[in-house]
C-alpha cells in the first residue's frame, strides 16, 4: 500500500522536524501573559493600538502615523487594529477589558468623551475616568460643506431653502452631529440628521447630493474643497483655520458653537505608572519626528500633545460646556 507508506514517511519526517524545532521554540504558553510585569516593558511583546473607526479615516491615519515612531522607539511591533462601531465605543469597551500591561492602547476620540454622553442615556456613556490617559495628540476642526449643485453657499441660503434640510453626520454623538444640531437650532432651520459610519461615507453622500449638507473634519474634506467639488459654508472653529482663510466661522456669524475633534492615547485603567511614563516618552519621540510634523500639516491637524492630566481637564471642561448649550437650546442628539 503505497498510500500508507507515504503517510508513515511523512509523519516520521514531520515528527523529526517538530522535535528539532521544539528545542528552539518556547515551552507551553498556558497561563502565560501575567509574567510580563512593569519592569521589563515592552519585554519583546508587540503593542496593539485600537482604532474605533474604519481604515482610511483621520483617526486611523493618525494612529498609523504614530505607530511607526513608537515602534522604532520601543523596539517591538506596534500594530493598528480597526474595531469600528458606535463611534469607537466598541473599541473603548474592548480596551477596558484588556490587561493593563501597556500592550493594548487606543486612539480615543474626544467626541466619545464629551459629545456621546449628551446623546445616549445616562449610564450607557463611557466615562473617561475608567481609563489611563497616556498623552494628547492633536485637534481637528469641523467644516460644514455642500455640493456646488445644491446652490447653497451661506447659512442664509440654508434658512431660505423653504424645506427641511437633510444633514449628514459622521455618526450619532459625534462633533459632526453636535455642530450642525447647534447651528440649525440657533438659526431656526428645520433639519433632519442622517448618520453615516465616519467621515468618508458622509463625504460621498454630500458629493452625490444624497444629503444637503454635512459637517466633516477639515482634514478629510480639504482635498475636495480645493478641487472645487465641495463648497465650504462655515467652519466650527473658534478662529478661521489657516487652511481655509476665506470661509467664515460660525462664531463670526453670531452662533456660539465652537466644536472640535480632539484625540488622545488611552490605556486600560490600572496600567502601572512606569509603563505609562515609558509609553508617553515613546509618543513624545514620535511627535518630534519631521515626518509626523509634516503629516499634521498635510492633514490640517493642530498638535495638542499635552499630558494625561491636562487632557482630562480639557475634555471634562468641553463636556460641561456642551451640556450647557444643549440644555439651553433643548437639543436631542440621540436616544435619552
Amino acid at each position: 500500500m503505497t498510500g500508507n507508506n507515504g503517510v508513515t514517511r511523512w509523519a516520521a519526517a514531520s515528527l523529526a522536524l517538530g522535535l528539532a524545532l521544539s528545542t528552539t521554540a518556547c515551552g507551553g504558553n498556558l497561563g502565560s501573559g501575567a509574567n510580563s510585569g512593569a519592569q521589563d516593558f515592552p519585554g519583546g511583546q508587540p503593542v496593539t493600538i485600537y482604532v474605533g473607526q474604519d481604515p482610511g479615516g483621520s483617526t486611523d491615519l493618525i494612529a498609523r502615523a504614530l505607530a511607526k515612531g513608537v515602534s522604532d522607539d520601543l523596539g517591538v511591533a506596534v500594530t493598528v487594529e480597526n474595531k469600528p462601531g458606535a463611534n469607537g465605543a466598541l473599541a473603548a469597551k474592548e480596551l477596558a477589558g484588556k490587561k493593563p500591561d501597556g500592550h493594548t492602547l487606543m486612539v480615543y476620540n474626544g467626541s466619545l468623551a464629551y459629545i456621546t454622553p449628551l446623546a445616549v442615556p445616562p449610564g450607557e456613556a463611557i466615562d473617561i475616568a475608567g481609563y489611563e490617559i497616556i498623552t494628547g495628540i492633536s485637534q481637528d476642526d469641523y467644516v460644514l460643506v455642500t455640493a456646488p449643485s445644491s446652490g447653497m453657499a451661506t447659512v442664509e441660503d440654508l434658512k431660505k431653502a423653504g424645506r427641511p434640510i437633510t444633514y449628514g453626520t459622521t455618526g450619532v454623538g459625534t462633533g459632526s452631529q453636535l455642530s450642525q444640531a447647534l447651528l440649525f437650532a440657533q438659526t431656526g432651520v428645520t433639519a433632519t440628521p442622517v448618520p453615516f459610519d465616519g467621515g468618508s461615507p458622509t463625504l460621498t453622500a454630500v458629493l452625490g447630493g444624497q444629503v444637503d449638507v454635512g459637517s466633516i473634519q477639515l482634514g478629510e474634506a480639504i482635498e475636495q474643497i480645493k478641487a472645487g467639488k465641495l463648497k465650504p459654508i462655515v467652519t466650527f472653529a473658534e478662529k478661521r483655520p489657516s487652511y481655509l482663510p476665506d470661509t467664515p466661522t460660525a462664531v463670526e456669524q453670531g452662533y456660539t458653537i465652537p466644536v472640535q475633534q480632539s484625540r488622545a492615547i488611552f490605556a486600560p485603567k490600572g496600567t502601572p505608572q512606569s509603563v505609562q511614563d515609558r509609553l508617553r516618552a515613546s509618543f513624545q519621540k514620535a511627535f518630534g519626528a519631521a515626518d509626523y510634523k509634516k503629516f499634521n500639516e498635510d492633514n490640517q491637524l493642530t498638535p495638542n500633545e499635552v499630558d494625561g492630566t491636562k487632557l482630562r481637564e480639557q475634555w471634562t471642561a468641553s463636556l460641561d460646556g456642551y451640556r450647557k448649550v444643549v440644555d439651553q437650546f433643548k437639543i436631542t442628539l440621540g436616544k435619552k
Partner: peptide, 9 residues
C-alpha cells in the same frame, strides 16, 4: 446582533 450604530442600543 450587537450594538446598533444609530441609537447605541
Amino acid at each position: 446582533v450587537g450594538r446598533d450604530g444609530f441609537t447605541g442600543a
